[in-house]
Simulated scan of single mutants.
Amino acid sequence: MSLEKNAVLRSEKLLHSFWHVNHCIRRIVQRTALENDLTVPQYALLITIAPFEEMTQKQLGKATFFPKSTLSQAVDGLVQAELIKRNPVEDNRREMLLTLSEKGQVLYDKIQKQESSILKAFETATELLSEKQYDDLLTSQRQITTLLEEVIERGE
C-alpha cells in the first residue's frame, strides 16, 4: 500500500472515530435530556452552568457555541421551569447573569447520578484510562482542535 493511501486511511479512520464518538454522545445526551423533561440545548446549558453556579448569558453562548436564538429559547425555558434565575449584571444592565436555582441544582445532582447520563459515561471512560493515556488523549485532542480551528479561520 502506498504511503499516500495509508495516510488517507489513517485520517479517515480518525475522522470516523470522532464521528462515532460524536454520534454516541448525541444519542446519550438526547436520551438524558428527554428523561429529565429538557430539550438538548436546555440540558447543555444546565450542565455548563452547574459547575460554576452562575455565568453571564454571553459566557454561556461562548461555551456552548449556540446561535443567539437557540441560546435565548433554551434560557427562557430554563427560567420558566425555575431551573435557573436571570438577573441583569449590576454594572451592565444589558448583560444577563444566569444563576442555577436550588431546583436546578437538585436536577443537576440527579442527572449526575443517573447511570445512563453522559456525565456518568465519561466518568466510567476516564476511569478505564491510565493517567498517561488520559493526558495523551487530551493533548492529542487539543492539537486536533487547534488545527481544525485554524482551518475554520482560514475559511472565514
Rank of each mutant, 00 (worst) to 15 (best):
D136A: 09
E4K: 11
V151S: 06
Q73S: 09
I118E: 05
N92E: 12
K120V: 00
L147V: 04
F18K: 12
L60M: 02
D91H: 06
Y134S: 13
H23W: 11
L34N: 10
T146G: 12
E102Q: 10
K5G: 04
S101I: 01
E127L: 15
I118Y: 01
K62E: 13
L98I: 03
E12D: 13
G77C: 06
S140H: 13
I111T: 08
K58C: 01
Y108F: 15
L34Y: 10
Y134T: 08
D91P: 02
N6Y: 13
G155M: 02
L128H: 09
A74S: 10
Q42R: 07
N92G: 04
L71T: 01
K103C: 01
T39P: 08
G104K: 04
Y134I: 04
L97R: 08
E131C: 14
T32I: 09
A121M: 05
E115K: 10
L15R: 15
T126G: 08
V40I: 12
L3W: 00
V79K: 07
K5L: 09
F52H: 13
I118Q: 06
E150R: 11
S116D: 10
G155D: 03
K68I: 02
S116Y: 07
V89S: 08
Q105E: 15
L128E: 12
K110P: 03
N87L: 02
S72N: 02
L78V: 06
L60T: 03
E90F: 00
D135C: 09
T126E: 13
Q73R: 12
I111K: 07
E12N: 13
L107D: 04
A7S: 09
L60H: 05
D109G: 09
Q42G: 12
A63D: 05
L129I: 11
K132M: 09
E149G: 03
Q59K: 15
K58Y: 09
Q59T: 13
T64K: 00
Q57I: 03
T124H: 12
L14Y: 13
V151W: 00
A50W: 07
G61P: 00
K58N: 08
S11N: 15
L14T: 12
L138G: 02
T126L: 13
F52D: 06
T48L: 07
Y134L: 15
K120N: 01
I144S: 02
L119P: 07
I84Y: 05
Q112D: 07
F18A: 14
H16F: 15
L119W: 00
K85W: 01
L119R: 00
E12T: 14
Q42L: 05
Q112K: 15
R27T: 14
Y43W: 11
T48V: 08
Q133P: 10
A81E: 03
E95R: 11
E115M: 02
Q112E: 13
Q112L: 14
I28E: 08
